[in-house]
Simulated scan of single mutants.
Amino acid sequence: MTVQQDWKEEDSSDFVEFGEYFVPDRKTQMDAITSLIPQPQGPAEMLDLCCGQGRLSEALLAAFPQATVVGLDLSPTMLGAAAKDLAEYGDRFRTERFDLAEKDWRQRAQAPAAVVSSLAVHHLDASGKQDLFRDVFDMLRPGGVLLIADLVQPVAQRGVALARRMWNDAVRDQSIAGTGGTEPYEKFHELEWSCFEYPDELDKPSPLFDQLGWLRNVGFDEVDAYWMKAGHAIYGGVKPGN
């Protein structure tokens, strides 16, 4: 059983269509991630885990002209959309089909300078997250960074209620700003997208403080949380070295 077995291709299609409205401050998040990656000296490879339609991959390609980016995803719909949208980058971008929870993709011919992921790691349980952090630490080159933009679990119901309300507000505001109406916001609820309002077995967010500790435990340095809003956070660390 794969960690993403309950994710269906229609879910991918919905996210391609509505992701700009469903993700709070999506561009701000991508800008934050690219700003936290040191400019590589010479050619470098970066991995985008669960790349979706390639929005974060595109931000990496634009910010780091000497880098190649590998977009990994389980969904053929997502991989097809990413390959099409990023075709202008030629061989600087390629796709790879994978399952986040499996181990086979975690041995790389080239040690990446950065591993990033958006809205994917919360599909792993606590043990799976710790295994992922350990394996990414091992695969990164010295000085490489792991940056995650994801859902995190508030530790008490007051925090859950605030995350739920703020996520609803963000989607409604982005819907009105982008379309002049509330159709994407209505779709957000029709699809029961918010794990803070419609919990299901596919979503397993862990508390942010736990994850920062797991990153430190496997050896990451400069472990930090860089941004947070509506139950979404950006966090990560650096592999010690030059």
Rank of each mutant, 00 (worst) to 15 (best):
D73E: 09
H122F: 03
E201N: 14
L100K: 07
E183K: 08
L212I: 00
D14F: 12
L56Q: 13
F15C: 00
Q107H: 09
M1V: 15
Q211S: 01
F196G: 04
D221S: 15
L208T: 06
A87H: 04
A170Q: 08
F137Y: 15
W227S: 11
R106Y: 10
M166D: 14
A177R: 08
S175M: 10
V218M: 02
Q153C: 03
E222D: 13
E10N: 05
Q4A: 13
L151T: 05
V171K: 02
V160S: 06
S35I: 05
G128E: 06
D14T: 14
G213S: 14
V160Y: 06
P199R: 08
G90M: 04
L151P: 00
E58D: 15
A225R: 03
D6Y: 11
V116A: 07
Q130S: 14
D31F: 03
E17W: 13
R106S: 04
R92Y: 04
K103Y: 04
G143I: 04
M1K: 07
D31C: 02
A230V: 07
Y21N: 01
K27C: 07
A177W: 04
E96R: 15
E197G: 12
L124M: 03
G90P: 08
I176Y: 04
G54R: 07
R164C: 05
G52Y: 05
W193T: 12
R134Q: 12
E197T: 14
A63W: 05
L86Q: 05
D173I: 00
Q157A: 12
L208Q: 09
A161F: 14
L191V: 05
D48Q: 10
L191F: 09
L119D: 02
D11P: 08
M78W: 03
L119A: 12
L208H: 15
M228Y: 11
S206N: 15
Y89G: 04
L132C: 08
A161I: 12
E10L: 02
A120Y: 13
W7N: 08
E17Y: 11
P112I: 01
A62Y: 05
P207E: 03
L47A: 10
L86V: 00
Q66S: 12
A83L: 11
V136E: 06
A44H: 06
L215G: 01
P199Q: 10
L56D: 05
K84V: 12
D99W: 13
A120Q: 08
